[in-house]
Simulated assay, not measured.
Amino acid sequence: MHKWLYLLVAIISEVAGTTALKSAEGFTRLWPSCVVVAGYASAFYFLSLTLKAIPVGIAYAIWSGLGTALVAVVAWVFMGQRLDLPAVFGILLIIAGVLVLNLCSTSATH
């Protein structure tokens, strides 16, 4: 169970770091830059813990897929980024892929 919690923390940390990149303005603003560094450091640390129990290909696919989808949603909700129908469809396909990996694949450890 810890492996999935670690992966969730890694995803949330990566989303926080990526979201703060815009506010960091090329690392010219201190506090958003600190959030970027802390977010990515935390993301990689917890991803490394995840890799003790989940194969790297599966963990990375889930981490990057859900991270990408969540960053798009956060940008839409908090930064006013527009998402057209193809973007929404693409995000749904990413989420569907993560679900298929977890629910149907024997490659993922359960």
Rank of each mutant, 00 (worst) to 15 (best):
A69L: 05
A53N: 11
Y6M: 08
A87Y: 06
L21I: 14
I94G: 00
G39V: 02
V74R: 03
L103N: 11
T106C: 07
I94F: 00
G39I: 02
Q81E: 15
C104N: 09
V56F: 12
F46H: 00
V36L: 14
M1A: 12
A38G: 11
H2S: 11
H2N: 11
V100H: 05
A24L: 04
V100Q: 06
Y40G: 09
V98H: 09
L7T: 04
I58M: 13
W63T: 04
F44A: 01
S64K: 04
L51F: 07
L30C: 12
Y40M: 07
T18L: 11
L51H: 05
I58N: 05
V56L: 15
V9F: 08
S48D: 00
V77D: 09
I94V: 11
L92H: 08
A43Y: 00
N102C: 14
P55I: 02
T106L: 11
V73M: 12
E25Y: 12
N102P: 00
K3V: 00
G90F: 04
V73W: 12
T19R: 09
R82Y: 09
F44M: 06
A10P: 05
V71R: 04
A108F: 12
I11K: 00
V15Q: 07
L92I: 13
A10Y: 00
L30R: 12
A38F: 13
A108Q: 04
G39N: 06
L8C: 07
A41M: 12
H110G: 13
L93Y: 03
A20I: 06
M79P: 03
W4C: 01
G57A: 10
L83Q: 09
A24Y: 07
V73N: 04
I54S: 03
S105C: 04
S64F: 02
V35C: 13
S64R: 06
I91S: 02
T19Y: 15
V35N: 09
L7N: 07
V9N: 00
T28Y: 01
L101E: 03
L5A: 11
A87R: 11
G65Y: 03
I58A: 14
L92E: 09
V77P: 07
A108E: 01
Y60M: 05
V35T: 13
G67L: 05
L99R: 06
V56Q: 12
L70F: 14
P32H: 09
L66T: 13
G97V: 03
V15I: 13
L47T: 02
D84R: 08
L93F: 13
I58C: 07
L21F: 08
W4L: 07
V35H: 13
N102M: 14
V74N: 02
P32V: 10
